[in-house]
């Protein structure tokens, strides 16, 4: 008989798994609040969480105005990076020498310190969207490419031999066996990269932009408003979590068999 995990009680399980995290994070914020209130430290040095939230709420218009460009740069850069990584991963899979030729280039691209590269890219390509897309792509491309190349390689030998024995040519073996085998790896890469993507977008704005959370943070800092810096950080963290959640959701929808087997992706 098949075994199907009972649906009832799933919410309860989720809560029992979450409460330790809620408790520790909540406790941390309480400590912070108490310290900021009682120690007499000025809010221009360390604002209490309640002040961060209040000032953030007052500034919600400006925050939202600056979130949209960051979100645009994140999503566009990420889309470019994932498409390019996919195209290149396919090329590498069909033409193995490419791997040895190109991988060192991408490894080197990962060693470039963002702090040095971002201002240069802005200098070369201006304050518009293009340099931001490039910087987001730069930080997310490599993990996506590696995830895909590894995913193809993780195809079970028997499955490949089976499809080959049926008379499938190389490209069909790729479509039928290797590509779906790489799906869990693809999503693992997606989850990692999306968090890099938001940070990459904010950093590229920090190096120079007309609008965006990065430049908002820079301005707030220069105006001695750490409360607004932290409000913008809260927004960016929320944004990252939402995007992360979206990748998990997409994975669940596109890989329904994972929920049945109880197996997790790598």
């Amino acid at each position: 008989m098949p075994f199907i995990r009972p649906v009832a009680g799933r919410a309860a399980t989720a809560f029992s798994r979450l409460w330790p995290a809620l408790l520790s994070v909540g406790g941390l914020f309480l400590l912070w609040e108490a310290y900021a209130q009682l120690s007499g430290i000025p809010p221009t040095t360390l604002p209490a969480p309640s002040r961060v939230l209040m000032q953030g709420a007052l500034q919600h218009r400006a925050l939202w105005d600056n979130t949209l460009p960051t979100l645009t740069a994140t999503l566009l850069g990420f889309a470019c990076s994932v498409s390019a990584a996919f195209a290149l991963s396919v090329l590498i899979d069909f033409f193995r020498p490419l791997r040895r030729a190109l991988l060192p280039v991408f490894v080197i691209s990962q060693t470039l310190p963002m702090i040095a590269i971002a201002p240069l890219v802005v200098l070369w390509f201006g304050f518009g969207l293009a340099p931001k897309i490039m910087l987001v792509a730069l930080v997310t491309f490599f993990p996506m490419l590696i995830a895909l190349v590894q995913g193809y390689a993780a195809t079970a030998d028997e499955i490949e031999q089976l499809v080959a024995s049926m008379g499938a040519p190389r490209w069909r073996i790729f479509l039928i066996a290797r590509l779906p085998s790489a799906l869990p790896f693809f999503f693992a890469g997606l989850r990692i990269s999306i968090t890099y993507a938001v940070v990459g977008a904010i950093f590229s704005e920090y190096a120079g932009a007309a609008k965006g959370l990065g430049i908002y943070i820079l301005n707030a800092k220069n105006n001695f408003r750490p409360d607004l810096v932290l409000a913008a950080v809260t927004v960016s963290a929320t944004l990252t979590l939402l995007l992360f959640g979206a990748t998990v959701l997409i994975q669940r929808l596109s890989m329904p068999w994972l929920r049945l087997s109880g197996s997790e992706s790598p």
Partner: peptide, 26 residues
Amino acid sequence: AFMPQRDALMDWRRIIDNTTLGLEVQ
């Protein structure tokens, strides 16, 4: 028609789509 060691069923295909694999390749 070859049957490999272990079953080599594809996790991502429903049973009916696993069984039609050879026909699909044909």
